[in-house]
Design a protein around this nucleic acid. Structure first.
Lengths: 341, 341
DNA sequence: AATATAAACGTGCTCGTGCACATTTTTTTA
DNA sequence: TAAAAAAATGTGCACGAGCACGTTTATATT
């Protein structure tokens, strides 16, 4: 490991000058800059972050922009757990995290929230964004982020943006995986209904599309999509069960499978319906272990949050090159392997 | 964050004295020790490892005792990857790792290897042990480890030892999970054979036992256990296929599923046999993506290695309390979710 | 009691970096 | 050309912990 002192000696200048060049603080001539940069390149200087964070007075601040934790069946608690874990680990490097929670269903709250980010006096050193309102994020938010603030997406993704990385999931893959599992679960003829409880979300779209596509050639099973749209949850569920006497399975492409399991339990429905859902919310876990839900898929939202912050850290603090895309593997959860998760 | 300087002031002594008490370096009276320890406890002092690793001259050295990477179908490469990842991350904290590879099937190599550890001049600050030869480790190795060297087990486990932690897997759970998946795969009557390719390993025993037990009540499927014992692999496989015209599935409780898939490919066997195996070795991955293998289970050996080193680090360097048992979740891998692993 | 010895405690330097301030060199202005 | 202003460069301290060495007390020895 080469130190600033050694570089100073090699370039025949003082430590301060090397420091100024490295941080582009000005007050050096072109000639010395060239000299120093050459040495810097030659020895492939990497700052000792240990020493740096020891001396640093001000904090590195990362902003996190994501929906309120309780939304989507408390789904958003999960990435936040990972973010908190990263926060704790990076505390000693003087990294601080500021949370900006918004109501993902209210444009007003969304706008307010991101106005808060833009108007923050003490500047942010990076942003982690879950672009829940995708269209809005794409059209307005992204463009207004100052150029000098690097940002990372997780959960969803705005194409053609200048984000330094995207931590995400492969929804097409997870849809076809769900279909495979559903086929294994259902041996007889019958109907499988897809229950959509979240509006406007391209992950959900992809999961549904890919799930349905896998059943195209399958003549034994009929796929029917239900949406919570202008009706209540209870009425919808009643319809699903009433309209399909041969209902064999339910696929919930969002975190809401537990709600359906709860409906089945409360209405004391005794029909043998297989359920595949997403995400390890508390309720989902409970019904998975009881056997009401057969499979849960998860693309580790806590890891997504964790890696999001870590990616910002690697880029901003360590100045390392980060991967443009980091796809989290899909986990399959059953009653049998739920323990220890 | 409280510093040594502040503690010194609170206890009315100098920084040096606090330092001596913390590291039990002697040269302090009982009275001052008590005084300092009280303050230490009161403020819940946590040393700043940033400052420490900056000033530390000597390295912290952890020894890793595990089978040669190529053994067990290259299974042992996997935990080593995780260990290497931890090594890289901890480099800046002046942590170094020394590898002691042994041939897990040779008692002589085993003995030689652990003699090397015990006779090492520069003392080790911790040990990560994969007790492949369980009996031997239990009876001889453990007892000879000096009391001051903390050790962590991974992969397997010696009961009633003084290890600070065990990173491991739940083989009983994974056995019954395999059985569940096998039941989903096989709808008709037939035979499922378990092929045992690894001798003397209680993980394998547990997987087999638990898998078999799950089929006890199942009258449609017959379970038959085959062992590579006194015969060659090819002869064994020939027997499996010849003796069971109704063979529907093969369960490989070790990393050897790929070898069986290769046999099927090379002999051009066209029978529809479902295969469930363990571990993401290169060959296994390749046959999983081709569809020859239906499911692979994995208890992330790379995470086990990684967490093993991290646990030693947390205990030795950070002086944190570590969990006595850390069970790694069971992953289910299929063609559909293999990508991005 | 005076000296020797050991136990107890304090001080100062080190690690590599960031930053404020001091100093030197160059350029501009009167 | 001397003085003032600006640009360029150098220096010293801080961060928190570890450790060597120096200094002060307490105990043992003559």
């Amino acid at each position: 490991m080469v130190t600033i002192k050694e570089i100073a000696e090699l370039a025949n200048v003082s430590r301060g000058t090397v420091d100024r060049v490295i941080h582009e603080r000005g007050n050096y001539s072109e000639a010395t800059e060239k000299k120093v940069r050459e040495v810097l390149k030659k020895v492939d200087y990497k700052p000792n972050i240990i020493a740096r964070s020891l001396v640093l007075k001000k904090h590195i601040t990362f902003g996190v922009f994501l929906p309120e934790p309780h939304q989507d069946e408390k789904y958003w608690e999960l990435p936040e757990q990972g973010i908190k874990k990263a926060e704790k680990e990076l505390e000693m490097y003087k990294v601080k995290i500021v949370y900006f929670h918004c109501n993902k269903n209210s444009k007003v709250s969304f706008k307010k929230c991101f106005d808060k980010i833009l108007k923050k006096k003490s500047k942010l050193d990076g942003l982690l964004i879950a672009p829940a309102m995708l269209e809005f994020t794409r059209k307005e938010f992204i463009k207004k982020i100052p150029d000098e603030i690097p940002y990372v997406f997780f959960d969803s993704y705005v194409p053609n943006s200048k984000c330094i990385s995207y931590i995400g999931q492969n929804s097409v893959q997870s849809g076809s995986l769900s279909a495979k599992l559903m086929k294994l679960l259902i041996r007889e003829q019958g109907t499988v209904s897809i229950i959509r409880m979240v509006p406007k979300d391209y992950h959900i779209d992809d999961r549904i599309k890919s799930f349905s596509a896998s059943f195209k050639k399958n003549k034994k099973i009929k796929i029917k999509v239900y949406e919570i749209n202008g009706t209540t949850f209870n009425k919808l569920l009643k319809n699903v069960f009433d309209e399909n006497p041969d209902l064999k399975g339910i696929f919930v492409p969002s975190a809401g499978a537990g709600r359906i399991a709860e409906y089945i339990k409360s209405k004391k429905i005794k029909r043998n319906v297989r359920i595949i859902g997403y995400d390890l919310t508390t309720r989902n876990k409970s019904f998975l272990s009881k056997g009401t839900i057969d499979f849960l898929l998860s693309q580790r939202p806590e890891i997504q949050g964790y890696e999001g912050i870590m990616t910002l850290f690697r880029h901003v603090v360590l100045k390392e090159k980060v991967k443009k895309e980091q796809i989290i593997p899909i986990d399959i959860l059953t009653k049998e392997n739920l323990k220890n998760y």
